[in-house]
């Protein structure tokens, strides 16, 4: 179920206004001819539709589990779904225990990672979004900053880690630094693109009404750029969550990344698989929250 909405949300952002409403309504007309038009038939149609909508998702999950179970049968080191499920139940029965800095519950590890992402991402947004606006608005600034952005953007996030360790002389700020530097580019670029793509018509309105810079910003620039900004934010959150696991493997401490590394050293493969699911689910939730926020701010 969630996988389906996830894909839909993505379409929603990238092609914005035109396709989504049609795409969202499209399956209905296909089903309708089978149902009589009369009112009492309609409530019965709904559960049928829900099942049909969920069917491909459930089937996909079942096939996935089947393949996983098959592979685990042939290679004895890899635990199967059932064994992993049992281990997960045990793990989540007490997610918030604390036995010193190197042995904490899974809940604490997840929260520690989320905290790093929040700080790094927050700083990136605080700097990247205003910078994006300025680059979009002022040609001179764009010419100044664009080459640097183009040069630094393709650099693998982890390449920044040594610099962070060198400057901050501590693991935690270095990990946050890596999040910051990898999350900032999509926000700068998407915001700037949004400002550049504002239809000339809207700027003509601003000119004819002779609006002040502040009114132009609040009534025209900001609302027009918001969808682009939200795309940037979503891409950034995605990158940040992707990078935190890798960064924590290198820096250690409390966090889901380091937890994976630790479990690898303990050769606890069930926990590694569980961690993969946790990372995936948390990433999906972050994405979903942002899709909802984006919908809330959309004026369509």
């Amino acid at each position: 179920m969630s996988a389906v909405t996830f894909v839909k949300g993505r379409e929603d952002m990238e092609t914005k206004e035109q396709t989504t409403p049609a795409a969202a309504v499209a399956p209905r007309p296909q089903l309708k001819p089978a149902q009589p038009e009369s009112a009492p038939a309609r409530p019965r149609a709904w559960p049928g539709m829900a099942v049909r909508a969920a069917l491909p998702t459930l089937l996909g999950l079942a096939v996935f589990m089947g393949i996983w179970a098959l592979i685990s049968q042939t290679s004895p080191q890899l635990p199967g779904p059932l064994k992993t499920w049992a281990s997960a139940q045990e793990l989540f029965s007490d997610p918030f225990y604390n036995k010193g800095p190197n042995d904490q519950g899974i809940g604490w590890n997840i929260l520690a990672s989320l905290q790093r992402v929040a700080i790094g991402f927050g700083m990136a947004a605080a700097l990247g979004i205003p910078l994006g606006f300025m680059i979009g608005r002022f040609k001179f600034l764009s010419a100044m900053v664009s080459p640097i952005v183009s040069l630094l953007r393709p650099v693998s996030p982890l390449a920044w880690l040594p610099i962070g360790l060198l400057v901050f002389k501590a693991a935690n700020p270095a990990a946050i630094w890596v999040i910051f530097i990898s999350a900032i580019w999509p926000m700068i670029i998407n915001t700037a693109v949004g400002v550049n793509r504002i239809p000339q018509d809207y700027m003509n309105v601003a000119k004819v009404l002779n609006l002040s810079e502040w009114k132009i910003f609040t009534k025209i620039l900001f609302p027009a750029v918001l969808p682009y900004m939200m795309t940037g934010i979503r891409l950034s959150i995605g990158v940040a969550w992707l990078v935190i696991v890798a960064a924590e493997m290198l820096t250690g401490g409390v966090g889901i990344g380091f937890w994976v590394w630790d479990e690898w050293n303990n050769l606890n493969v069930e926990h590694i698989i569980i961690a993969i699911f946790i990372v995936g689910i948390v990433g999906l939730l972050l994405e979903q929250v942002l899709v909802l926020v984006a919908k809330r701010f959309s004026y369509e």
Binding site: D201, Y202, N204, V205, K207, V208, L209, N210, L211, K215, K219, I220, P223, A224, Y299, E300
Partner: peptide, 28 residues
């Protein structure tokens, strides 16, 4: 340059889509 003493009705109406009709006029 443009000025409010010259009011323009654009060929393609050019309303701001995130404002209601009232707000669009109120802005002016």
């Amino acid at each position: 340059g443009p000025g409010p003493e010259r009011g323009v009705v654009f060929q393609n109406h050019s309303l701001l889509p995130w404002l209601t009709c009232f707000e669009n006029v109120y802005l002016a």
